[in-house]
Amino acid sequence: MTTVAALREAAEPATGRTTVRRRSVSQPLLYAALLMCALLTLLPFVWVLGGSLRSLDEIRSDPGAWLPHHVTLGNFTRLFRTQGFGRFLVNSVVVAAMVVVGNVVAASAAGYALAKLEFAGRRLAFGAVMAALMVPFTTVFVPQFVITVDLGLADSLTGIALPAMALPLSVFIMRQYALSIPDELLEAARIDGAGEFRIFFRIFLPLAGPAVATITIMSFLTSWNNFIWPLVVAQSMQSYTLPVGLAATSQAAAHVTDYGLLLAGAIVVMLPVLVLFLFLQRYFVQGVAGTGMR
């Protein structure tokens, strides 16, 4: 859902055109309503940030308060010193890196072939991509787990990353983008005697920057936020990713109500993606506007 939404977000022009001028009486009301909604949306973020910066004693004496009296980074220190979040962070980064590289490689090649090469079985392959987009995770995770165990990849970062390393959505994005590149360009190179791989690397890939950027961002997001699959595969803290680590810490801490620690954990999990989202929104837009998806 995230990815589809982001696609649409991107497909939308950065500066929307304004519609017919309306009576201005309702304008202040509208702004007030929108501001209210925005505040409600942001409330959880403010609350979690405030809570993560409060000391354990302060939270115990006044659990529902919003802002810290004394700002402390003690929760974050404890998170990394005693709760293994350093390890989880590294794991999340490693898995995300594998997933991003895998998607860029697999989707560039497959998307290009599906859009620009004529060969037997192409329609079948495209049908497989579309079918894979539809299969619910719940249906396949049990056999996926059995396969992962059989491959000796249970409780390993590779086992967590592998299924997400060639997402059908990435292939779809690259195919749509490749369709927009004129055939003449590739044909000219073919007449000059260039081989298919040379054409792919020298002509297509340099032009595919926007699609590669989109796939990078999308697959990073998918990997970073993925929860169920890492939960199934990771069996020891050695291979926990951040969301799994946070969920485990949350279950363990539920009895001692160590809110500060958990809220700090939530910040560590949320922040990288939110920062990325704030700064790369434009790249989402540019990237997918080029794929012609609407």
Partner: peptide, 8 residues
């Protein structure tokens, strides 16, 4: 939409 569900 982009926020991690475990944290939320």
């Amino acid at each position: 939409v982009v926020t991690n569900v475990v944290a939320v």
